[in-house]
């Protein structure tokens, strides 16, 4: 009986408490809606998340891209005002946290996947572009990796319809299916 109680307590702590405890969460600096921007600013991801001339990926757009439209408040929302006051006016880059930031030892080339591989953004990033709110950025307390790449639950990444994970296993899965090479240093640096 005490054995069972102990087991149950541990199961509860391990399945419910632990996943909460292991992640540190922080909100994104700006209340940003992909959906609104997709409607008003640009229809394609590349309109903001652009490639540079040399083919490298610029990632999250810098303030100048935002300021191109948001030099002055475009709406009356508090978030808009806050963005202008806190970032645009003092010309301070928002401290965006990239959900999909790979670890330092990973080399990932967007252009290779987009141009040569013909992958759609959604294939890896899911429907991020249609989201109305930015979810908080969660980071593993010990490993320091974003939850999006390190911490999908066991079943989520494999489940049908779910966003493909960004763990090494997911990369390898896809490469294997495509018959692409996957030696370690293909993707690690």
């Amino acid at each position: 009986m005490p054995f069972l109680a102990g087991a149950l307590a541990a199961l509860g702590a391990g399945w419910v408490g632990f996943p909460h405890a292991i992640y540190k969460s922080r909100p994104q600096p700006v209340d940003f809606s992909h959906k609104v921007h997709a409607e008003k600013a640009g229809t394609k991801c590349e309109d903001c998340h652009a490639f540079r001339e040399d083919g490298t990926f610029a990632g999250i757009p810098s303030l100048s891209t935002c300021a191109a439209c948001h030099a002055a408040p475009m709406g009356t929302t508090a978030a808009e005002k806050n963005f202008i006051d806190a970032y645009v006016t003092p010309n301070r880059e928002p401290d965006w946290a990239s959900y999909a930031q790979q670890p330092e030892n990973v080399f990932f080339s967007h252009i290779t996947h987009v141009k040569l591989g013909q992958l759609k953004c959604e294939q890896c990033h899911g429907d991020q572009g249609a989201s109305d709110k930015l979810r908080p950025y969660q980071v593993d307390r010990i490993s320091g990796y974003s939850r999006d790449i390190w911490g999908r639950t066991l079943f989520q990444s494999k489940a049908a319809g779910a966003v493909p994970g960004m763990k090494m296993d997911d990369c390898v899965d896809c490469h294997r299916k495509q018959g692409l090479s996957h030696s370690c240093l293909d993707c690690h640096k």
């Binding site: 102990g6 087991a7 149950l8 632990f18």
Partner: peptide
Amino acid sequence: DILLFMGGGAAGAMLTPAPWR
């Protein structure tokens, strides 16, 4: 009882992601 509780806890914990994670 305490030993059993701890033993159960250890066994139960093994069935959660926590230790592996």
